[in-house]
Design a protein around this nucleic acid. Structure first.
Lengths: 397, 397
DNA sequence: CTCCTTAGTTCGTTCTCAGGACTAAGTAAA
DNA sequence: TTTACTTAGTCCTGAGAACGAACTAAGGAG
């Protein structure tokens, strides 16, 4: 339970101003109207934010009547964070501006057998020269992450890993998150949606759910591990059990099914090419997957009731071929009328989504604190032993 | 995005004080330590709260050293709300003290065919003499409630009902909520849990999920309608579709299965009596249900990842007979180690849970506003045309 | 050139808390 | 019994923040 004092009010009002400016340039008068603050209060806070280099003055408005106002906007690059996705196949690293722009991005692949040490060593080697001025590094893993521990990542074969140890020498604050959850954040953080489900359809299947603007994590960070819903046949899953949903609905499942039909394809690109050429077998396999996806979405709708579903992950590149069968199955199985027309769209950050979400863990925190953060970026002599992992408070307003 | 001014500080600090006192009596000095407020600030706010009749001074502490302090506590009955559960079989109405005590409760049954008008007429007739001083009336329905509309209640056979019209003449603010969601609130609101799932195992099956202290509702209020997860056979469901989970896991399903085995039982009480007498057929039926429950809980755990599951609803009275098979099935199907030991317990408010949850919709709001509410309980001349329904902000801190 | 309108600043007032000095009320030890 | 010590709670002054009214700035219309 937060207490209130005069500092807290200032923080609240700075946050209100920054939040409004995230949606676009505004004059001081606009801000006064939007926040309900007195003009004098807005002027004072804006002055402060200009001093700190967070805001910039821009063009003048030209209203039909009265004095023109000065537009204010968030200064590009004034704050940014690093984000990384440590995936099954490879790693994505990027820097994300506080306005949502990807400043730079880099990707590389790993040998399948590469363990945590190897992957993180490369990540740090790449990230180290880029840390200057960053708020932190948020990275994602395709597994159950809670606080500073990775509990289980079936598709990497990792279990009970202490991330703290791996990160001991990195000179920035770090936060870890599940990849689907971070991806959901990437969709939501720059548009302020309240209810959304981000489906990662890849080697496995996972979903990141945003409910009332907050990321759903659960007690062990396992909320949204819908790839491991059981009751779908008897196929063995990477998690060690049988009949998990992702044995039927995933890239792995698609390739298996396709092979069982007699098809030959190694990866998504081949499949897409074949589908575009009109290969009937490939189209049948994709329709099969689309139908499973639609049935699944009907269940997802009664579980989380999102206002919108985003499909990401590698298999999502096949989305155009899945959409029709998916739509028909969803309509056939929907519980509510509203679910029949549930919008289902491909991801807007594409394959960078998870890494963008990782970075926005830090940006979210920055905005939540009204920009009063990272002003002393080197407490504790450059080390961050006291760093908070997997922030339980969740981002967003 | 909330703005801050000097009023807001006061509200925040009143809320902090009331919230701490909800857990038990404390002295002013305790409050100062817990909130971080200066002693003088605490004294001032406490004085104000005493004046308003919200707090009372009680016994003195007898510390080993130093001056004894005066214990403060929430004054019993100082605030209360009405809560009602409009269920399939009947209605429960009660008044709930702001400390969580049920002041009085009343129940009655309805003819199966009774429509909304008939049921609400009776509810208002019973509630009307009890409205004096209440913060509001929060009622629940066994269906999908969003804002002031009931979208769908399969087991009542109601669809697209405007609750606003039904409530036009009631002289208190009203809020509507789904029964499982309200029940979840009843468990959480007086104990401050962060992650919990409340299972209503009754005619149908529904779950109310609390994640990070907030009730999960979804865009249409359909989050947690897990009774309508599909993929379990072909039996026809009350919702009109086939293969919903509640055709396998519900009181209705239990009775059907039992009859299919050749058993005879009309209701829960009969079943329980027979089970206690050692009837092997009944025990087999219950074990069958328990096993289904366990398998379901493994799926629930990966969907929402609660720290605790509470089982309520009428079929929950059979919980002792379900527990063994449920536990075994859950352990066999758990995804995470942590899920194997997931605590599953019967409801603490019993069959009053939903109604208690309904009332606590208003108490939650009261605490959230730092007790600054209902101080002018008759604005708008006793009518509440402007009343907010199904508060999207969610209760709890 | 004057009037009207809106943007933004200045300044005095008000609200709330922080913090230190002080009083109150108990125990322990001389 | 007296004195020292400890903790509870009050009182008072000062500081931070926002409010609101008065004022200046800058444009357009007639």
């Amino acid at each position: 339970m937060r207490k209130g004092d005069t500092q807290e009010i200032r923080r609240l009002n700075r946050r209100a101003i920054l939040s409004h400016l995230r949606r676009g340039p505004l004059t001081r008068a606009d801000l006064s109207r939007l926040t309900g603050l007195a003009k004098s209060a807005v002027s004072r806070l804006v002055e402060e934010l200009l001093q700190e280099g967070l805001l910039e003055e821009g063009a003048f408005t030209s209203p039909p009547l009265g004095r023109p106002g000065t537009l204010l906007h968030l200064r590009p690059g004034a704050r940014f964070a690093l984000g990384a996705e440590v995936g099954v196949e490879g790693t994505v690293l990027l820097a994300l501006d506080w306005r949502g722009e990807v400043i730079w991005a880099k990707e590389w692949r790993h040998p399948k057998a590469a363990g945590p040490e190897e992957r993180f060593a490369r990540l740090f080697q790449e990230a180290l020269p880029k840390t200057e001025g960053a708020l932190g590094l948020g990275f994602t893993l395709p597994g159950v992450v809670v606080g500073e521990r990775l509990l289980f990542a079936p598709n990497l074969g990792w279990r009970e890993l202490s991330l703290k140890d791996l990160l001991a020498d990195f000179p920035l604050p770090t936060l870890a998150e599940n990849d689907a959850k971070a991806s959901a954040l990437s969709e939501v953080f720059f548009h302020g949606e309240e209810n959304l489900a981000y489906l990662v359809l890849s080697t496995g299947l996972g979903v990141g759910v945003v409910a009332e603007g907050r990321l759903l994590r659960g007690a062990n960070g396992a909320a949204g591990e819908v790839g491991h819903w059981q009751g779908q046949g008897e196929r063995r899953c990477a998690c060690g059990r049988k009949g998990c949903l992702e044995t039927e609905l995933s890239l792995e499942a698609l390739l298996q099914h396709h092979r069982a039909l007699g098809g030959e394809a190694e990866d998504v690109d081949t499949l897409r090419a074949q589908a575009q050429e009109g290969d009937p077998l490939v189209q049948a396999s994709l329709a099969h997957l689309g139908e499973a996806l639609g049935r699944f979405l009907a269940n997802l709708a009664v579980a989380y009731d999102p206002a919108r579903v985003v499909v990401g992950g590698k298999a999502a590149e096949l989305f155009p071929f899945l959409e029709g069968p998916m739509r028909r199955a969803l309509e056939a199985h929907a519980f509510l009328q509203a679910h029949r027309t549930l919008p289902v769209q491909p991801s807007s950050y594409g394959h960078l989504a998870a890494a963008v979400g990782g970075a926005s863990l830090f940006l979210a925190r920055f905005f939540e604190l009204g920009g009063l953060w990272a002003e002393s970026p080197r407490r504790n002599g450059g080390r961050y032993a006291e760093v908070a992992f997997g922030d339980r408070r969740g981002p967003g307003a």
